[in-house]
Simulated assay, not measured.
Amino acid sequence: MDDILIVFDLDGTLIDTSHDLLDSLNFCLSTIDLEPVEYGQLSVLVGQGAKAMLTRAFDIRSKSVSDSELNDFFELFVSHYGKNMPGKSRAYDGLDEALERLQIDGVRFAICTNKHESLARLLMEKLGMSDQFVALTGGNSFSFRKPDGRHILETIKLANGKPDRTIMIGDSINDIAATKDAGIPSIGVPFGFSDVPIADLKPDGIISHYDELTYQLIIELLNK
C-alpha cells in the first residue's frame, strides 16, 4: 500500500468548533461590557489563531487595546475555552467513517492548524481522537504558520511523510494558499469558516461531505 498522508486543518474542517469559539470570544468581550459578536460574523474572525480573532472582534466593536491588554485577553480566552472543552464541538458528519475506511487502505493522518498547539491537542484528547493522528502542529509550533507552506512541510516531516504522497484538506484561504506554497494538492470543504466560497480559492478538489473522501479521489489528486 502507498504510504499516503492526509494533513487536515482543524477548526472548520475536522471539527465544528464554531459555537465554543464564539462563546469564549463573547465571554472576553463581556468582561469589558462590549456587545457580543454574532455567529454570522465568525467566518471573518477565525483562521489566524485566538489573538487575531480577539483583535478582529475588538475592531468590529471599535475598541482599541494595547499589546499588553491583548495578551491578557488571550490568556482569558485560553482559560475559558480550555475549561469548557469539548463543549459543543463535534467532528463533522461522516468523518469517523471516512478515517476508518482510509486507514484500511494504509492512509495516515496529521493535523496542521493555526490554533494554539496546546488547545488543539487538548481538544483532540477531550474528543477521544488523538490516537488517530500521527502528528499535530499549531500556530505557535514554529516561527511561521499557514498560509506559509513551511507549516505544512514541517508537519509532514514530523509525521515521517513524503510531500509527494501528501494531500491537505482545509476550509479557508490560509489552508489552500499554504498548499500552493508547499506544492501539496488540496481538497477544500465548504462547510467550514471561509468568508468566500471554497471554489473561489481553487483547491484541487472539493468534497461537500466526508462520504465523498475516498481513496480513489486521493490517488487521482496525487497523480494529477
Rank of each mutant, 00 (worst) to 15 (best):
D2H: 11
D3L: 14
D3G: 09
L5I: 10
I6H: 09
V7Q: 08
D9H: 10
L10M: 04
L10Q: 07
G12C: 01
G12V: 01
G12S: 05
T13I: 09
L14T: 07
I15H: 02
L22G: 01
D23G: 10
D23T: 02
D23Y: 06
S24H: 13
N26P: 14
N26W: 02
C28E: 02
L29D: 12
L29Q: 12
S30A: 13
D33Q: 13
L34V: 12
E35Y: 08
V37T: 13
E38N: 10
Y39I: 06
G40I: 05
Q41G: 01
S43F: 01
S43P: 10
V44W: 02
K51S: 15
K51P: 07
A57F: 00
D59L: 07
I60N: 01
R61Y: 01
K63A: 01
V65T: 14
L70P: 00
N71K: 07
N71F: 07
F73L: 13
F74A: 06
L76Y: 02
F77A: 04
F77N: 02
V78G: 00
S79W: 00
H80L: 04
Y81W: 12
N84R: 15
N84P: 03
N84W: 08
P86S: 08
G87T: 12
G87H: 15
K88A: 13
S89H: 11
S89I: 14
Y92V: 05
Y92A: 08
Y92S: 06
D96P: 01
L99W: 11
R101V: 01
L102V: 08
L102F: 07
L102K: 10
Q103F: 06
D105C: 09
G106Y: 10
V107C: 11
F109G: 05
F109T: 06
F109W: 04
F109M: 01
I111P: 04
N114W: 02
K115W: 04
K115F: 11
H116E: 11
S118P: 00
R121I: 09
M124N: 06
E125H: 05
L127H: 13
S130G: 00
Q132W: 04
A135S: 12
L136I: 14
N140R: 03
F142V: 06
F142T: 05
S143A: 15
S143D: 15
K146I: 04
P147W: 07
R150W: 04
H151C: 03
L153V: 12
L153C: 01
T155I: 10
T155K: 05
T155E: 06
A159L: 10
N160T: 06
N160S: 13
G161A: 09
K162N: 07
P163H: 03
T166A: 02
M168S: 11
M168H: 14
I169W: 06
D175K: 11
I176K: 03
A178I: 06
T179D: 03
K180W: 02
K180N: 08
G188C: 12
V189L: 14
F191H: 01
F191K: 02
F193A: 00
D195S: 14
I198N: 03
I198F: 08
A199K: 15
A199G: 11
D200P: 02
P203S: 11
I206L: 07
H209N: 15
H209R: 05
Y210H: 12
Y210P: 03
D211N: 10
D211F: 03
E212G: 00
L213H: 04
Q216H: 04
E220K: 07
L221F: 15
L221M: 15
L222P: 08
N223L: 12
